[in-house]
Amino acid sequence: MNMEFAFLLAGVLLILAGCFCLIRTYHLLKIIIGMELSMKAVTLLFVIAGRINGNMELSQAFIITIIVIEVVITLVASGVALDLYKKYGNLDVRNLRNLRG
């Protein structure tokens, strides 16, 4: 059980935690926090991948791109969540029941 396996384990556990948060919560902004947590876990996986294959600079290029995309996704998701707040008055996911079938 060396350091790389510990990192891999931590990455998988964090992805599980993020997905768990995303699925079980009732608060719109907390869903976004779950998304962020999962993407941080993916960043951790890229860091350990860079260390294992020796090409740390390429890994850093990937991580920087992922962080830029993460910011834009957070912005768009918060924008949609705030528009939903303006329509419904609260940030409850249980409001989103209009589309059925």
Binding site: L29, I32, I33, E36, K40, T43, V47, G50, R51, M56, S59, Q60, I63, I64, I67, V68, E70, V71, T74, L75, S78, A81, L82, Y85, L91
Partner: peptide, 28 residues
């Protein structure tokens, strides 16, 4: 051994995204 990525992570994720969240929370 990834200083550039650490720089981006701490300035963007710990800084910018937290600001976005807190402004979103206060707006709602």
């Amino acid at each position: 051994g990834a200083p550039w990525a650490a720089l981006f992570e701490v300035s963007v994720c710990a800084g910018l995204i937290t600001v976005i969240f807190i402004s979103g929370i206060s707006l709602s």
